[in-house]
Deep mutational scan, measured.
Amino acid sequence: DYYEVLGLQRYASPEDIKKAYHKVALKWHPDKNPENKEEAERKFKEVAEAYEVLSNDEKRDIYD
């Protein structure tokens, strides 16, 4: 669930989505996790995908 990936509720505002994305993206950035790079890359891609969908009103409506 994209909301879960970003740690958000379904009623999150666009500002909340952006803030959550930056927080979680920093947490899972591969450069910040050199000891667990493969998992970090996978999680970072999930976070980016979730943000791409939830930050676009049209894609978010379809997802919801």
Rank of each mutant, 00 (worst) to 15 (best):
D64T: 10
A12G: 03
G7E: 11
A50Y: 00
G7A: 03
S13F: 02
V24I: 12
E15W: 02
R60W: 01
N56C: 13
Y21L: 00
E46F: 05
V24R: 09
D31M: 05
K43Y: 07
E49N: 08
I17D: 01
A50C: 02
P30L: 06
Y63M: 06
I62C: 13
E4W: 05
E4I: 01
I17W: 01
Y3Q: 03
R42E: 05
P14C: 13
D1G: 12
P14G: 12
I62V: 13
E49V: 09
A20W: 00
D64Y: 02
E35R: 06
K27H: 10
V24C: 10
D31Q: 10
Y63W: 07
E38I: 10
A50L: 00
R42Q: 10
E46S: 08
V53K: 03
Y2L: 15
V53Q: 11
E58N: 10
E38R: 12
K32S: 10
N33W: 07
E58M: 10
A20S: 06
E4R: 13
P14Y: 13
K27F: 07
E35Y: 04
K45Q: 15
S13E: 08
E15F: 02
K23Y: 09
E52M: 07
D31L: 06
E39F: 01
D16P: 01
H22P: 03
Y51N: 02
K37N: 06
E38C: 13
A12M: 00
K59C: 06
V24P: 02
V47K: 00
D16F: 00
K19F: 10
E49A: 10
Y63C: 04
Y63D: 06
R60F: 03
N56W: 00
K43G: 03
G7M: 01
E35I: 08
D61Q: 11
Y21P: 01
K32M: 05
P34H: 15
A50K: 03
P30A: 09
Y11W: 11
R60P: 06
E35L: 04
K45N: 05
K19V: 13
R60D: 03
G7T: 04
K59Y: 13
V47W: 00
K45L: 11
Y11D: 15
S13R: 11
K59L: 09
A48I: 02
L8H: 01
K45I: 04
K43D: 01
I17Y: 03
Q9C: 10
E39M: 14
N36H: 12
P30K: 05
I62W: 15
L26D: 12
P34F: 12
I62T: 12
N36M: 13
L6Y: 00
E15T: 06
N56G: 04
Y11F: 11
I62R: 15
A12Q: 01
E39D: 08
K32E: 11
E15Y: 03
D57H: 09
R60V: 04
H22W: 10
K27E: 11
P30C: 04
N33Q: 08
K45G: 08
R10L: 04
A20P: 00
A50R: 00
E39K: 10
A12W: 00
K32W: 04
L54D: 01
S13V: 03
K45M: 13
K19C: 11
K32R: 11
Y2C: 01
P34C: 05
P30E: 06
K19Q: 13
